[in-house]
């Protein structure tokens, strides 16, 4: 259903560093879960529309008025690293 190589690729897409043991365990477990999902093919859904959420909603519009929000400082305080007014992160681009 899903092999080790695919698990490795999906982990990269999900930005997860998996250990070799985790990769092996997930390959086995995800395969059996995906196999379990196979039963959905028993249902004919050819002309069935998808449901994205249970209760129908319409867009909500409101006047664009200034409201108090959480302050800059309070938000920055929660960041693992900050410098001046910015979130600080390690190198993004290669040399």
């Amino acid at each position: 259903m899903i092999d080790r190589e695919q698990v490795h690729k999906v982990a990269h897409l999900a930005r997860l560093d998996l250990t070799a043991d985790e990769e092996a365990a997930f390959t086995k477990q995800l395969s059996s879960i995906l196999e379990y999902f196979e039963q959905l093919s028993e249902l004919d859904t050819e002309n069935v529309p998808p449901t994205t959420r249970a209760i129908e909603l319409s867009n909500v519009a409101r006047p664009d008025q200034l409201q108090p929000t959480v302050s800059h400082d309070e938000l920055l305080k929660e960041a693992p690293a900050q410098e001046d007014d910015f979130f600080r992160v390690p190198q993004i681009l290669n040399d």
Binding site: L40, S41, L43, T45, V48, P49, P50, T51, T52
Partner: peptide
Amino acid sequence: LKAQKVRTL
């Protein structure tokens, strides 16, 4: 998509 259709059913 299949799961969302099943959700409708």
